[in-house]
């Protein structure tokens, strides 16, 4: 069943075309990996879908009753703000009053997420005292508080070590099997292991069903040079920043 459709999406900033005629569809429960070079428009695409950025033309259709959740790439908040981890997670609840949150079992839901993402020992700490990986887990928990049916994660694994990265996506699929996930990542290894389909975004976009995307195929479509580099514990492939249609000589 179709849950989300983007049709002919155009986004420009000043004179620069960020996204051009981007179209794709998502089914319920599908996990889509969004890959592409830095500056290629991946974050812009999901921000436009989330309603956080205006777009110039096209249609973004979201099924009736579907709820969006969004995990930003970088924390967009001021980490010196006096707020605890528990309060940040609870702020993801659709209910704003404490009374309503208690009535609707939102407090228990927050506690469950705190346990699931191993945040129990820091739940009363100020958000600014957390490491990058812990902050990311808080942001994922906050997004899950709203019980989203479509979860958009912008580079969710950027601050997390490799083992946790894989675990994070796998666990989401196990715990929330109905949830449709859009996963923006520069890390092809994570994308290849966990997704049902891949969207290559570099100003234009190309949808590929399945989680196998050969380097030659990608290069043919976008001219993206790919190489295996050492990063963390095991080697993985990355896309390098490049001008669309031109190869970058490394």
């Amino acid at each position: 069943m179709k849950i989300l459709e983007v049709n002919g999406l155009h986004v420009t900033r000043g004179d620069k075309k960020i996204l051009e005629n981007v179209s794709f569809k998502l089914k319920k429960g599908e996990v889509l990996g969004i890959i592409g070079p830095n500056g290629g428009g991946k974050s812009t695409l999901i921000k436009a879908i989330a309603g956080l950025l205006p777009f110039d033309a096209g249609i973004i259709w979201i099924g009736k009753g579907e709820k969006l959740g969004y995990v930003p790439q970088f924390a967009t908040f001021d980490d010196s703000f006096p707020i605890t981890v528990r309060e940040v997670i609870l702020s993801g609840s659709p209910y704003l009053s404490r009374k309503k949150r208690m009535e609707m079992g939102e407090i228990e839901r927050a506690e469950e997420l705190i346990r699931r993402y191993q945040l129990s020992n820091v739940s009363n700490h100020p958000i600014g005292a957390l490491s990058g990986g812990q902050t990311q887990r808080v942001l994922i928990s906050r997004a899950l508080m709203g019980n989203p049916t479509i979860l958009m994660m912008d580079e969710p694994t950027a601050s997390i070590d490799f083992k946790t990265k894989d675990q994070l996506v796998q666990e989401l699929r196990e715990k929330e099997p109905e949830m449709t996930i859009m996963l923006v990542s520069h890390d092809l290894n994570v994308v290849n292991q966990t997704v049902d389909s891949i969207l290559c975004v570099n100003r234009i976009a190309d949808y590929h069903p399945g989680n196998r995307l050969e380097a030659d195929n990608l290069k043919k479509v976008y001219g993206c040079p790919i190489e295996v580099i050492l990063h963390g514990e095991i080697p993985h492939r990355v896309l390098h920043a490049h001008q669309h249609g031109k190869e970058t000589e490394e």
Binding site: G51, L52, D78, F81, E87, P94, R142, G146
Partner: peptide, 17 residues
């Protein structure tokens, strides 16, 4: 107060909500 806290802390998230 909770709404103000949310907006003052993270405008982007508040917009999304």
């Amino acid at each position: 107060f909770e709404t103000w806290k949310m907006i003052l802390f993270d405008e982007e998230h508040a917009k999304l909500m």
